[in-house]
Nucleic acid binder design. Structure first.
Lengths: 152, 152
DNA sequence: TACTATTACATAGTTAGCTATGCAATGTTA
DNA sequence: TAACATTGCATAGCTAACTATGTAATAGTA
């Protein structure tokens, strides 16, 4: 019943630790990319659009790990923030193609560097070997969760 | 420029991986605890209240890793859901003490077991040694992020 | 004792995730 | 070709995190 018992408990729960780590990381990212005029939720979409511009929402969605409705809302905010523009699709009136604006294109390098820098800083206490193992564990656990999710 | 290059990239970003893992885990937890009438955000507060009931919001806050406003909103939803009741503090009219209802108390064991079960399942592919290392890495990285956050 | 500062908590407004559902355009088929 | 099914995207409504700010009540002090 001493308080360190609970502390111990949380510190040994993968669920607690990963949640805590994710929240801390996203706040670090938020602060560092604020000067670029973007927020963390826009990062994955930007990464994809920097790779290939002019995609439809559906094509973009296939490159990301979020739900369609989440992407639709994120794109609306990105349009509001002047990062992208949506044009009518030449062949399908339901669809719209998504294009980076000059602003969206221009921040590519700094955004990319910022993200790399954060990854580097937060992993600074781990050796190269430990980092490799850590990332590997996360990939394995993610794979396992996806199995668990759909009844393995 | 081939698509596996981007894939490779994301799969080697600690930030991406931890965010993805956290989201997947919270959705598994959400599904599993839904029958108990609780949601993931209520879990940390419940764990703390099961340890010690009748705390003030401030005392509860000190046991958790969220902001005060987040807790206040979570407590409001917990009250709405019949998990807790708030009573006037005997000595301080600003404060209120937080008490588990019978419902809040009764789900303790099943909630605890569910969380333990999920942790076990998602770590099933890792050996005892690997699990120990994985949790250790997360604790070290979390410590590092907290340093990074406040300068240093 | 009357100001002033601090404290405890609540509220407002934003991001970002989710599911469920709506709607218009396109495709399919009887 | 008219009816129905599917598709692409948007919207509604929820949780849960954040910061900033408001509002009483309490505490401290000139």
């Amino acid at each position: 019943m001493l308080s360190w018992i609970m502390e111990f408990d949380r510190m040994n729960s993968a669920g607690y630790l990963v949640n805590n780590m994710a929240r801390l990381l996203v706040e670090v990212l938020r602060k560092r990319i604020a000067p670029l005029g973007i927020v963390p939720g826009q990062f994955p979409a930007l990464l994809a659009l920097w790779e290939k511009d002019g995609l439809t929402q559906k094509e973009l969605l296939a490159m990301l790990d979020i739900e369609q409705a989440t992407l639709a809302n994120t794109l609306t905010r990105m349009e509001r923030d002047g990062l992208i523009a949506r044009k009518e699709h030449p062949a399908d009136a339901r669809a719209r193609t998504i294009h980076l604006t000059e602003k969206g294109r221009s921040i590519r390098e700094s955004a990319y560097q910022t993200a790399m820098q954060i990854n580097e800083e937060v992993l600074a206490d781990l050796s190269v070997e430990e980092t490799r193992a850590f990332l590997g564990y996360m990939r394995r656990v993610i794979g396992r969760i996806k199995e668990v999710e759909h009844g393995s």
